[in-house]
Simulated scan of single mutants.
Amino acid sequence: MIGDSEFDRDTAVTRREPGVYDIDLCAGWTIINAVNGGYLLAVLGRALADTLPHPDPFTVSAHYLTASQPGPAVVRTETVRTGRTLSTGQASLLQYDEEGNEVERIRVLASYGDLSALPDDVRTTAVPPAVPPIEQCFGPDDSPAPVPGSSAITDRLMLKLDPATLGWALGAPSGKGEMRAWFGLADGRDADPLSLLLAVDALPPTAFEIGLKGWVPTVELTVHVRHRPAPGPLRVSITTRNLAGGFLEEDAEVWDSEDRLVAQSRQLARVRLG
């Protein structure tokens, strides 16, 4: 069921016919003048949830082909396979160039299931990230200077970053390639599996803490949703271990208020060197 929060309204798609959806990509989800990749993934995720018989994204893999712009877009979906536990589909988001030709922005392959039907057995060595209490962390409003370029998305989020990963904002990046934060939606909407697709790609890029600046466009992003999150703010931890040839990986973990690992992701991103 789609609610009336800002996130719900701005990711809502209108079914034109089976497998074809219309949406107006909202400029409120841009960062450095580009539509955020996590927001776009949530848009595609909502269309796939309408197409497939299962409700929840389990694994979503997206290739970002061209930069999306605010404005009209079309999502085309296709059911690849339907089973008892999982169903698989693919989706593409397209916009139009100045000549009216369709340009594919993103292509996704995803498997959906029912998170509420999973067994409770958890065996893990993963531990929640050590993030200071939320009142000891800092958000965009605390920054001495705004991030260069448009940062409209920060008004839609409750984002409080761990001071240990904020050296870049003070001109002294740590060089560690780490970013940690408390995360939520600014209007208080509780997290759900769809908003986890946004959470994994909503923090400042780890490239900032490596000492790089500017846009870090996503090439490919894969998200695994592991559990339906409990109410309350999420903790997001992102790390980069290897930057080579102008590309880096970002590994993200998302933990809920009950110390459960609710989502994991890995993305390959491009950086501008020099």
Rank of each mutant, 00 (worst) to 15 (best):
V35P: 01
P133E: 07
L196P: 02
D120N: 12
E258A: 14
C137I: 05
V108N: 02
L159G: 04
R123Q: 14
R260V: 02
A12Y: 03
A244T: 13
V103H: 10
V271L: 10
A130R: 14
L273R: 11
A252P: 04
G175A: 04
V254E: 06
R180D: 06
E220G: 09
A62V: 09
P133I: 08
A130F: 09
V219S: 15
W182F: 01
D162T: 13
L40M: 11
M179E: 10
S237E: 15
L94F: 07
P144E: 08
A42T: 08
P132I: 10
W168E: 06
G232A: 11
D162G: 08
I134E: 07
G274A: 13
L243W: 11
Q69P: 00
L159W: 01
A27D: 11
A34H: 15
A34Y: 03
P231T: 03
D4M: 06
F7V: 03
I32A: 15
D155V: 03
A207S: 15
G274T: 14
P233W: 12
E253I: 10
W182P: 02
A91K: 06
Q90P: 01
P140N: 11
F7D: 01
C26D: 13
T30S: 07
W255P: 02
A181M: 02
D155S: 15
Y96N: 09
E253R: 13
L86C: 04
H227G: 10
W255Y: 08
W168L: 08
G37H: 04
G214D: 05
G28K: 04
R76Y: 08
S61T: 15
T30W: 00
G211I: 12
N101C: 14
D256S: 06
T88W: 02
G139F: 12
H63L: 13
H54P: 00
Q136G: 11
L25E: 01
P205C: 11
L118M: 14
G245A: 10
V223Y: 03
L109R: 10
S143F: 15
M179C: 11
T165I: 11
P128K: 12
Q69T: 14
A191M: 05
T66S: 09
G184R: 00
H63C: 12
L86M: 13
Q69F: 06
G214R: 08
A62D: 00
R266W: 06
S150G: 15
A91C: 12
L185Q: 04
L115G: 10
D56M: 11
D8F: 01
P163F: 05
F138L: 15
A263P: 03
P229D: 02
I32Y: 06
L65E: 10
G175F: 09
M179Y: 08
F7E: 01
L159Q: 06
R266G: 00
A263K: 06
D121I: 10
H63T: 14
T165D: 13
V122H: 14
P132K: 07
L273N: 09
T11Q: 02
I106Q: 05
A199S: 12
V74E: 14
T165E: 01
V147S: 11
P70L: 07
A110M: 03
D114R: 12
R272K: 14
